[in-house]
């Protein structure tokens, strides 16, 4: 897997690493690189809706999108040979996720030998108006 991740870093095409995780494909997420920053995308998709009246993105999808963004972010930033495992994940919803494209950035707040703490930030219209923020711990396996 590490060789695939390295190839993605080189080509800046992240589809292979996203396709490696069936759930990422299921919700239709993407990833783009701008300078040294990775921006994760969740294009609007009828299958991701929750409340049909607003309509709003299902909160669960937003959580899954952010969790998976953090996993991909860790893969791209660290040379970890295995997929990071989620220990815990916590999300605060700040606004209803509307039926449109969602974006996310991640930051590794602290990286230890065995675990990493990651902060995630999602927005839709403006980056200054977050839809949700999340934090999580991931177990990093060296073998």
């Amino acid at each position: 897997m590490l060789s695939m991740v390295k190839e993605c870093r080189r080509t800046k095409v992240f589809k292979p690493v996203l396709d490696h995780i069936p759930y990422a494909k299921f919700i239709g997420m993407g990833c783009e690189q701008f300078g040294d920053e990775y921006i994760f995308t969740l294009p609007s998709n009828d299958n991701n809706l929750g409340n049909p009246t607003l309509p709003a993105i299902h909160g669960g999808v937003l959580g899954g999108f952010l969790e998976n963004s953090a996993i991909i972010h860790l893969l791209l930033k660290l040379d970890t040979p295995r997929l990071p495992k989620t220990i815990d994940f916590s999300i605060d919803y700040l606004r209803a996720g509307r039926h449109k494209d969602t974006f996310a950035i991640c930051e590794i707040t602290r990286q230890g030998r065995r675990a990493a703490n990651v902060s995630m930030y999602a927005w839709q219209t403006k980056q200054s108006e977050p839809t949700a923020v999340a934090r999580a711990h991931f177990l990093l396996e060296s073998t």
Binding site: H20, I21, P22, Y23, A24, K25, F26, I27, H58, G59, G60, V61, G63, G64, F65, E67, N68, I71, R82, L83, T86, F89
Partner: peptide
């Protein structure tokens, strides 16, 4: 469902799918 797997090596469900079930049931 294989579509919801997070790690193909183990076949375990992705945390996101598990999270969605937790959100839906709690709601």
């Amino acid at each position: 469902s294989l579509n919801l797997v997070g790690d193909m090596e183990t076949g375990a469900l992705h945390g996101g799918a598990i999270f969605t079930l937790a959100d839906q049931t709690s709601g």
